[in-house]
Design a binder for these strands. Sequence first.
DNA 1: AGCCAGGTCTGCG
DNA 2: CGCAGACATGGC
Length: 301
Amino acid sequence: MLPGMGTIRLRNDQPLDLALTLSCGQAFRWEERGGWWEGVVKGQIWRLRQDVDRLSFDGPDGREVRRYLALDEDLPAILAAVDHDPVIHPAIGACRGLRILRQDPWEILISFICATNTNIPRIRKMIASLAVNFGERIPGTGYDRYGFPTPEALPGSCGGDLAACRLGYREQSVAEAAARVAGDPGILGRIAVLPFNEARDALLSFRGIGPKAADCILLFGFNRLEAFPVDVWIRRIMYAHYLSPLPGARVPSEKEDRRIRAFGREHFGPFAGYAQEYLFCARGRRETAPSVPGGGGLSGR
DNA sequence: AGCCAGGTCTGCG
DNA sequence: CGCAGACATGGC
């Protein structure tokens, strides 16, 4: 591991909370071992460690680390652009240094197909299982680590050993996505350069990718910071503090989620995804229990 | 034991 | 369109 090893001095005005960034649910393959965060990125072992303003890395080179962690992004400027109400403000304070990673679109696509209707611990297990069963073993470590499987390496038709990964009803969607991307290797690259709504529509054409997964894939895999994923937690938070369901509307419902999404993107602007992530990561103080819609909205909508 | 989980799809009106 | 159920699994 000699090739890429070094340190980066973090600037005071560009905060990073490495642990929060790696563990908050945008990436699923990072583990803390002996004071270092260890993960697999681009088929290589990456080890990262933060001591206040010193970021140490082992595996990648400094340029790769900066890019992956989005250290070149002006975080305070982004947060200033979304910090204009008394709900997001404390979330920003509570999650200082949280950054949205720049991850591999293919890995994120599969990860968020797996992320539907389950919890983060199990998502991590599903992804780990895909890597162990179909990824390439990475030599030179004291224990086995595996790269995320390529589209070609995953069974492209249902059945096969994919069942061993215990994906449940997500299995068919994963298999189809693998077959499609393997058969059209340029597809994700083309999606990457589409306008937002067209990219979103392209993702929605995959089985197993609905509105929420599409927004997560855009945000975490394509660095589209305007994406505003609406999951059960965000729905709770938004109903508790920002808007109420339309009179007579069923909730949850796709129609209502669409309103939440539109409100989020309008209210928070081009960096709505950052606002969403801070709200998501700061969940659990006031939003642990389902709250009553209609009480305590910000505006009278 | 039972509810819930970073939802989505299908089959009906 | 919009709604209700089904769905496969395991965490807590």
